[in-house]
Design a protein around this nucleic acid. Structure first.
Lengths: 197, 197
DNA sequence: CGGCGTACATATCAACTGTTATGTACCTAC
DNA sequence: GTAGGTACATAACAGTTGATATGTACGCCG
């Protein structure tokens, strides 16, 4: 039998270091040495847990997805439009953690557009995100809080609106303070809400 | 007097090579050697026209902005909502050139978020884009084609929607064919249009 | 306790990066 | 024609990159 300490725990330490590098240096600054330095260790350690840089990147993106997913608990007590609003607001850079996450996310797009494998991963992530939003949109439509029509289009539009806002806020946080971000999202959803008699 | 051939023309050749590299390799693949290879030349040529890589990057981004601006001619015969729709549609990846442009744009965000100078440039670009859209939004509001309220918020929301759509389309062009992109934009603007009595 | 696999550190590798110095051909002005 | 600056090619630079091979300490199982 092999001599194990706690492999998984140590691997999570490396993960955390990867994350810190990504958050501060962006995706272009992700190097084996940077991760090692973050751990006060050497590249030998990093390569011991991740066989190649590609594996490290993939892991980092999985990490980002997991963290994103954790921001929006799947078991909401709210439903329909209100739950949708919360789900979208959770993506906005309203907290340091969400800002960090979006930074990593956006900065990954360079590599993701260049590498076919990463690109497919990112595509799938978007698909999954929309799939998660869809039931909420359907509920809101049934409640009359969103206009009828193709729910997939509505979801895509809402995802677009949200991420587009994220990008603008990342580059110009002063022009997009938390209050305004919330207000923009609220106003947008309200503008979509059909008037009732 | 110095011995000049046509410095500016040659510089534009280098520009074009830079652009080709960006379009195919993304921002992370922009190296002096790649540009030189694109010109069947050496790094000596590139450094002769651009003193440093930073200068090369800045120039590349200015190039991207100029091309983006050229996509939407400032002198429209249309006005109001229709002009706005055209202006936003021009940004969408509906043509190979627009797709190429958006690829470069999005891939630049990694470097732009990491480098303070580039970040400010990108911030300014967004500000200018919104400023260009604003009069069209104001016209549409006056025409009753867009709801009243803070026009700056409307502009920011429309820019967000458009760029968010761009990103999704770049990663998943099959799920977002040209027809659907146009339709999504149209439907979105229509959904915002107040009903009139 | 002895052997074996794990968990690293250390070292080295070739490849690639941006930068810079040097050489050289060529055009232009005198 | 010749002096001087331009337009590069060539070359070498120091640094960084991911990968890999080797060493070694240490914990577990027999």
């Amino acid at each position: 039998m092999p001599a194990k300490l706690d492999h998984e725990a140590r691997r999570r330490d490396v993960s955390a270091a990867v994350w810190r590098v990504l958050a501060t240096e962006g995706f272009g600054g992700l190097t084996l040495r940077a991760v090692a330095a973050e751990l006060n260790a050497t590249t030998g350690l990093v390569t011991h847990y991740f066989p190649s840089k590609q594996a490290l990147i993939v892991h980092a993106l999985e990490l980002a997805e997991a963290r994103t997913r954790a921001l929006v608990p799947p078991t909401e007590n709210a439903r329909g439009l209100e739950a949708l609003k919360q789900a979208l607001a959770a993506v906005l850079p309203l907290t340091p953690e969400a800002t960090e996450l979006n930074r990593v996310w956006v900065s990954s797009w360079d590599a993701a557009l260049a590498d076919p494998e990463l690109r497919i991963m990112e595509m799938s992530r978007y698909t999954r995100w929309r799939a998660r939003l869809k039931p909420l949109v359907l509920q809101a439509q049934q409640d009359g809080d969103l206009p009828p029509g193709n729910p997939n289009d509505l979801v895509a539009g809402l995802a677009a609106f949200t991420h587009g806002l994220v990008v603008q806020a990342l580059f110009d946080p002063r022009a997009f303070p938390h209050k305004r971000l919330r207000q923009l999202l609220d106003a947008h959803l309200e503008a979509l809400t059909p008037r009732r008699g």
